[in-house]
Simulated assay, not measured.
Amino acid sequence: MEISAMRALIKLIDGKGVGEKMNALTWAVIDTTGAEHELLTSDRPIIRTNGLMAENGHLALPIGPRKLFLAAKDVETVDRISSIPTAELVTEANRQVVEFAVRFVYGTDDRQLRFVQNRMATKEQPRIVSGLNKRGREHLLKRAMN
């Protein structure tokens, strides 16, 4: 079921409408070099809101110990997030990445081990397919099979 859902998701993303919307997002990479701590990553590293097209919609992804990728609906959201003090931004990104992790969290060393131990897997990230009603899941599976 998960493989079929992923195939359907890939087809949706490759579709003209979704692809155009993704390309229209404002993209940025935030350098967090000034922060005391480095960014962590995990087996669930994407930080997201309740929809990229919603007001203040965005997603973020640590792409290195000192780089955070950001995609947002508008420049104002990117500017607002970029203006957050670097230490606060790193702490919040790490909190979300660690809380939604399932089995693995990665860092360059063990300096944040206590932070990880206190927060690891404490929240369940909503899965894309689980948010769809039964009819929607069946539709995705049929599309994936074709």
Rank of each mutant, 00 (worst) to 15 (best):
N94F: 04
R137P: 00
N133W: 02
I30F: 04
P45M: 04
F69V: 05
M120N: 07
D110M: 13
E20W: 05
I81L: 15
A93G: 08
R44A: 13
G57C: 10
E76R: 11
R143E: 15
R66F: 05
K73Q: 11
I47M: 09
Q96A: 03
R48A: 04
N133Y: 03
N56T: 09
V98N: 01
A93R: 01
I30M: 04
A8H: 02
I47K: 02
I63Y: 01
A93N: 07
L9K: 05
H58T: 06
G15L: 08
N23D: 14
V18P: 01
D109K: 08
A35D: 07
A144Q: 08
D43W: 05
R48G: 03
F100W: 06
K73N: 11
V75I: 09
P62M: 04
K134W: 07
V98M: 03
L9E: 04
I81Y: 00
L70P: 01
F100A: 01
K11D: 10
I3V: 13
N94D: 14
V78K: 08
H139D: 11
R111H: 15
V78Q: 04
R44F: 03
G34S: 15
F69Y: 15
P85N: 15
N50S: 08
D74W: 03
T77S: 02
I128E: 09
H37L: 02
F69I: 05
K123G: 01
A60L: 13
